[in-house]
C-alpha cells in the first residue's frame, strides 16, 4: 500500500511502567530454569492500557509540540481494554485536551492492533479526511500463572502522531504491506481473563510465516532489499523470535539492535513493535530507512518502510524510551501478583 498523498510521522512517544520482574523470580515459583527473556515490565496497581496510552501520547505531543486542535483521530490498539464495552480513546481525548471533534475507537488484532490503528490513520490523513491523528499501541498483557506467557506478557505502549508531509514529518511513510490468514495460534474468548495458545504452533505457521510474507510482499511490490534499511524492527514476543526472523529475512544483528527491547521489558503486545520502533527513532539519523513489521496472532503482519527526515533531531521523544527503561526497578513475584490483581485484598 502506498499513499497517493505523502504522509508520515509527526511525533512519537513511548512508555513502560516503573516496575519489572525478573524471569528468574517467576521461574523460582514454578520450578523452571530456562527463560525466554531476562525481565518483563508490569503495570503498577493504578495503571492500565488507558494510562499507558496517555503517557505515550503525552510524550508524543509534548516532544513534537503537535497542534492539538488539528488532531482529529485517536485510535488505541490493544488486547487489554480496561472495559469490554466503553471506548478507551475517549478518556485520552479529554485528558490530553484534544478537540472533541475527533474520531476515536479501540482496535483489536492481538499484538498488531497498534500498527492496524496506525495504518488507519495513515489512510485518513492521506485521503485528507483529517489533518492529523494519533495511533497508539498499548497493553497490560496478562499471562496465566505458570503458563509460558507469564514470563513475557508485559506492559507498555507507544503513540504516533501522523500528519501529511506538508505539515512536516520526522519520518515519511514510503510503503506498507499487510498479510493476514486464519491461523489460530493464540486467542482469548470473551469473558476470559487469560489468553490461550498452541505453544510451538505460534512459531513457524504463525509468527514467522506472516512476518516473512508481509516483509517479502513489501520488498517485492516496492523493490526493497534488507540492505536498503539502516534499521529493522520486528514484533518481539520473546528475545529469540525477532532475532531469528531478522536473520531469515537477511537482516543483521546491528540493524535490529536499537529496537530490540523484549529481553529487558518483555512483550508489550500491541505496544511491542511500536515501542521498538520508538527506540529506533530515538537513535535514527536523517536519511535512514527503517523497516517496521508487526505480528498479531490469529494471524497477520503489517510491514512498513519509513525514511527519517531532518525533523527527527528536533522532535525526538523526550525522554527517550531507553531512559524510561533505565529508571525501572525490580519487584518480587508477590508484589507482581498483587499489582496485577491476581489476588485481592
Amino acid at each position: 500500500m502506498k499513499p497517493v498523498n505523502g504522509v508520515g510521522i509527526y511525533g512519537y512517544g513511548a512508555y513502560v511502567p516503573r516496575y519489572y520482574i525478573e524471569n528468574e523470580a517467576i521461574g523460582s515459583i514454578w520450578g523452571r530454569i530456562t527463560y525466554p527473556i531476562k525481565n518483563k515490565s508490569f503495570p503498577s496497581f493504578d495503571e492500565d492500557t488507558i494510562t499507558i496510552a496517555y503517557e505515550a501520547a503525552r510524550i508524543a505531543i509534548e516532544s513534537s509540540n503537535a497542534p492539538k486542535d488539528r488532531i482529529h483521530a485517536v485510535f488505541i490498539g490493544t488486547e487489554s481494554k480496561p472495559y469490554a464495552v466503553k471506548p478507551s480513546g475517549t478518556v485520552l481525548v479529554d485528558a490530553l485536551g484534544l478537540s472533541n471533534k475527533i474520531l476515536s475507537a479501540d482496535y483489536e488484532f492481538a499484538c498488531k492492533a497498534g500498527t492496524e490503528a496506525m495504518e488507519t490513520v495513515f489512510g485518513l490523513v492521506a485521503s485528507k479526511m483529517i489533518d492529523m491523528g494519533i495511533a497508539i499501541g498499548a497493553d497490560t498483557a496478562q499471562g496465566r500463572p505458570g503458563d509460558e506467557l507469564e514470563y513475557t506478557a508485559a506492559a507498555g505502549g507507544a503513540a504516533y502522531i501522523i500528519s501529511s508531509v506538508e505539515d512536516g514529518v520526522l519520518a515519511v511513510l514510503e510503503a506498507s504491506y499487510s498479510y493476514v490468514s486464519d491461523t489460530p495460534d493464540f486467542w482469548r474468548r470473551s469473558g476470559e481473563k487469560y489468553p490461550r495458545h498452541l505453544y510451538r504452533f505460534t512459531g513457524e505457521p504463525a509468527y514467522f510465516n506472516h512476518i516473512i510474507n508481509s516483509v517479502n510482499g513489501l520488498f517485492e511490490e516496492y523493490g526493497y532489499k534488507p540492505s536498503d534499511f539502516k534499521y529493522a524492527v520486528f514484533h518481539q514476543p520473546n528475545a529469540k523470535f525477532p532475532q531469528r526472523v531478522a536473520s531469515k529475512l537477511g537482516f543483521t544483528k546491528d540493524q535490529i539492535a536499537p529496537g530490540l527491547l523484549s529481553p529487558v521489558i518483555g512483550n508489550t503486545y500491541s505496544g511491542s513493535s511500536l515501542v521498538g520502533f520508538a527506540a529506533t527513532l530515538d537513535v535514527a539519523k536523517p536519511g535512514d530507512k527503517i523497516l517496521l513489521a508487526s505480528f498479531g496472532s490469529g494471524a497477520g503482519s503489517d510491514a512498513f518502510a519509513f525514511e527519517v527526515t531532518e525533523l527527527i533531531e528536533e522532535r525526538r521523544a523526550k525522554p527517550p524510551i531507553r531512559d524510561i527503561i533505565s529508571r525501572m526497578v525490580p519487584r518480587d513475584y508477590a508484589t507482581y501478583v498483587v499489582y496485577r490483581g491476581k489476588i485481592w485484598r
Binding site: R18, F45, D46, D48, I50, T51, R58
Partner: peptide, 22 residues
C-alpha cells in the same frame, strides 16, 4: 503529573481516572 486510575466502583463498575504526581 500523570494520569492514573483513582478508584473503581467495584469489579463491574466504572473506573475513575485522574492526575497523580510521580
Amino acid at each position: 503529573a500523570t494520569l492514573r486510575k483513582l478508584y473503581e466502583y467495584g469489579e463491574s463498575g466504572q473506573i475513575v481516572y485522574g492526575i497523580k504526581f510521580r
